[in-house]
Design a binder for these strands. Structure first.
Ligand SMILES: [Mn+2]
Ligand SMILES: [Mn+2]
Ligand SMILES: [Zn+2]
Ligand SMILES: [Zn+2]
Lengths: 152, 152
DNA sequence: CTCGCTATTGCAACGAGTCGCAATAGTCAC
DNA sequence: GTGACTATTGCGACTCGTTGCAATAGCGAG
């Protein structure tokens, strides 16, 4: 699929790059095509793998560097999973965080009201504006907590 | 410094290990001595480096595996810094989280009431019990937020 | 179309961990 | 003390990224 025929904001990436004095290269085109076909979250390694599917000569460092510039353009945002590994949120997606239960291993998205409440709690006294989507919060889900209490 | 002369809980580690059918080895002794001399946070790499200072033949995988068993004993807890890299909290230290400002690069500890408020916000509807100390929350500090508003 | 500037690439080395496996060495029972 | 059982170690390979550097190749100007 040609980049020009992709939906916004992907189709205008080449122009946005050139306007900044940056360049439109075949390698970046590959990354864009892969991102346009991804939805929600993708890990860095997955992205590299998918790029290699389209172009076997894909080099990891080039992909990661491209992701860096796309993040500056606001087209993706990176975060970290429960183990600290990178994952990319493909935009425009609603801002959201993740919770992970270390006992049962489940990971799920945090609801919007919940995210707002957390942000408010952190803003509290010192005015810190948290980027709730950057990390995966770890803990135990209600079911696992209940199960443990019952057992002990 | 001999392990036996270290303060609790370090001096009893050998016994606690043996009671579980685990073993007391020179390599583990080295890690314990280093941990007893550390306070607050240490990254995994730092720990390996310090162990190498006492015993040049220290192997990284052995140190990391030792940290795993010490975490099971509750003597250390690992978390992740703003870049997802591991850091270890040496116990017994008060439970606490970290905030990091991506604009000015500062990192600081989160106050106790603040941590409680965040935990409450997350517990909210679905009963998730967050381990606030596991990750470093990223965002912008009040100063940087104010500075940006003024500029724009 | 050609040229020159410099952003970007490929590559190779490195950093932070993790994992499987064969050899080693604690521990406990006698 | 000796021996056996098996937890642990060392090692090498591998994953996920990051970085410096020299060669390549976009892009805008003429
Ligand atoms: Mn973790
Ligand atoms: Mn990050
Ligand atoms: Zn759970
Ligand atoms: Zn700041």
């Amino acid at each position: 699929m040609a980049v020009e025929s992709l939906p916004e904001p992907w189709s205008s990436v080449s122009d946005r790059l050139r306007r900044r004095g940056l360049r439109w290269t075949p390698q970046r085109r590959t990354v864009i095509e892969v991102l346009a076909g991804a939805d929600g979250h993708v890990t860095g390694a997955e992205l590299v793998e998918r790029c290699r599917g389209r172009d076997a000569s894909t080099i990891p460092s080039t992909v990661y560097r491209t992701l860096d510039v796309l993040e500056e353009l606001g087209l993706v945002r990176h975060g970290h999973d429960a183990n600290g590994r990178e994952e990319f949120h493909v935009l425009p997606a609603a801002e959201h965080g993740h919770l992970h239960c270390r006992q049962c291993g489940a990971t799920w998205e945090i609801g919007d009201e919940r995210a707002t409440a957390v942000a408010a709690a952190l803003r509290g006294a010192d005015g810190f504006e948290v980027d709730i989507g950057h990390v995966t919060l770890v803990g135990r889900c209600a079911d696992c907590v209940a199960r443990t209490v019952a057992t002990s």
